[in-house]
Simulated scan of single mutants.
Amino acid sequence: MTNKFDEDSRERMLLAYLRGELDEQDVRNLRNEVTDDEEYAERLEHLLLGVPDKGQETPAPFSLTEKQQRAILTRGKWKMRFTNSAFTFVIFFLIGALLLLVNGWVGMWVYKDQFKVTEDIINFTQPGVSTGSSGSQVGLLYGQIQMELREQVGAEQQNVGYVESTNFLWSVRAEPKWANGVRETKLFFRYPTDEAMTREETAYLRTPAWNTMKKLHEGTVSQLAISFDRPMTYVDYIKLISKHIPEYNVDTLWFAVDTGVEAKEREQDGNLLLSAGDVWGYAESRLDYGNAPIQVNGEGDRRAAAYLAEMKYLSEHGRLAREIGRGILSHSDPKVEERYAYLKEKGVRIYGAVVTGPTKELLKLEAEKAITAAFLGKVDWWNWERPAASGTQLNW
């Protein structure tokens, strides 16, 4: 370690060398010292490349040999390259860390809402279909959610595909992937228009379903979409169905609800038929009722409140609901805000339902005069007695 006196002496030696004041022996000694001492060489490099002090003559850099000058300059270039590389690495590292933080924040922020909105749009616009198990993956500024789509026929849940919802930053899209590439839509609903029609005028909307069910074997179960001549409450619906079928012989899978938009969508010709995407409602088993369990055939007000709360949530996330809705509903606007405003004013009124159970039990509804339309969905072999254990293994 050198003291201040030695440093001053070495500095004066360098300046004397650059002014050409050293004899030949001192020059050789200095050159050897510069070669062996990297710090000394850096000081010489600084003096060679720097600007001289005011009043001093410009030193003659050619006092060093060409080889020594080249070595000093090469050392300086590599030092600069290393400094630049380290600086670049730190910059990219910080940018990467920032992107990961942003991606994690955006992912958490988008995922929760994206998941819930996708689930609601499916459960509210696809009669007889509900969401099941789900999975997700999150990448850099990218996320993907997959949800199983289920359809109940009798007592069994059947996989009918899945819905895929992806996002890149705030851009979101969703698309259902139906088994075999398409959903066979057979569940239609007649919207109760103001134009009064007789049972004879609407018979063609019921007769094919009843006739088919009469020909089906007793050991079958079926899906059935039924429509009523007027909107009604949940309690009214239960009373109507219970007149014909015991509650243990029928499951209600989905309700068609008047949201005020249906009548505006198409010209009212007396028989306004709506199907998946056009009709709105809810799968009651998929609503969030909180921690307390709900009565099987009761608490109509609580069911309505749960559905209204979900519609409010969708209206508060209008942009997300529109982007996801356009993918699921064939590019049409879901008009969530308009539907929610109507429901909040008029209440939750049911005008149709998807039911499932033993075929011959469902056929008893033929006697109900309030039913204006009936469309038969899927039919399967008897499965009404639920097995002790069952399951489905998916491979996506």
Rank of each mutant, 00 (worst) to 15 (best):
L253V: 11
N159S: 15
F375Q: 00
T131Y: 03
L273C: 04
F5K: 14
V336L: 09
D8N: 14
L365A: 04
N383H: 06
N84W: 14
L18M: 14
L216C: 05
L273A: 08
D269R: 10
S227P: 03
T392R: 13
E310L: 06
T83W: 12
Y342T: 07
K344I: 01
T125A: 03
G154E: 01
A374V: 00
V261R: 09
L49Q: 13
R319H: 13
L44K: 04
T83G: 11
R349C: 04
V102A: 12
I122Y: 03
T359F: 01
G391M: 02
V379H: 05
E218T: 13
E284Q: 14
L343T: 03
A370M: 11
N167Y: 15
R183C: 02
M232F: 06
V354G: 00
K346E: 14
L18A: 06
E262T: 09
Q157P: 04
K312C: 02
D251E: 15
P208N: 04
E175P: 00
W109I: 03
E316F: 09
E39V: 13
G104S: 14
A209S: 10
A305N: 13
Y289S: 06
E368G: 05
F228V: 06
I226Q: 01
G161E: 06
A309N: 14
P358E: 13
S134D: 06
A225H: 01
L314D: 03
N32F: 12
D8A: 11
P59D: 06
I226G: 01
I226M: 08
N103H: 10
